[in-house]
């Protein structure tokens, strides 16, 4: 298991919103749900490699800013055309006001 990576402060993300986090040449999207929970996925849409952080969060859905492809950001599940490939998700924890994500191998 790899280490937890500090991504941002919890206060950097509004409720029902998303920000971009770049680490080691990769891009991630960190979400704060309307229920004040935190989630993380790959940062790029599986359809055309667009940054999801410029998209809109509605409930548990992130919508790609380019072609409105939708994913459930809590599970990574693709939720409608044009996307058909799921999004990779990552474990998240919040400690002392900081958001950490675990990138696996």
């Amino acid at each position: 298991m790899s280490d937890w990576i500090e991504a941002c402060a919890a206060d950097d993300i509004d409720e029902e919103d998303v920000i971009r986090f770049d680490h080691a040449g990769r891009s991630f999207a960190i979400y704060r749900s309307p229920e004040d929970e935190f989630f993380a996925t790959d940062g790029l849409c599986t359809h055309e490699q667009i940054h999801l952080s410029q998209g809109l969060v509605m409930g548990d859905i992130i919508e790609c800013p380019k072609h409105n492809g939708r994913f459930n950001y809590k599970t990574g599940a693709a939720r409608g055309a044009p996307v058909c490939v799921n999004l990779q998700t990552y474990p998240v924890k919040v400690d002392a006001g900081k958001v950490f994500i675990q990138l696996g191998n």
């Binding site: 667009i50 940054h51 410029q54 998209g55 809109l56 919508e63 800013p65 380019k66 409105n68």
Partner: peptide, 11 residues
């Protein structure tokens, strides 16, 4: 630039 207007247009 890029998708700066996307979110507000969607809303």
């Amino acid at each position: 630039p890029d998708n700066t207007v996307a979110r507000d247009i969607r809303l």
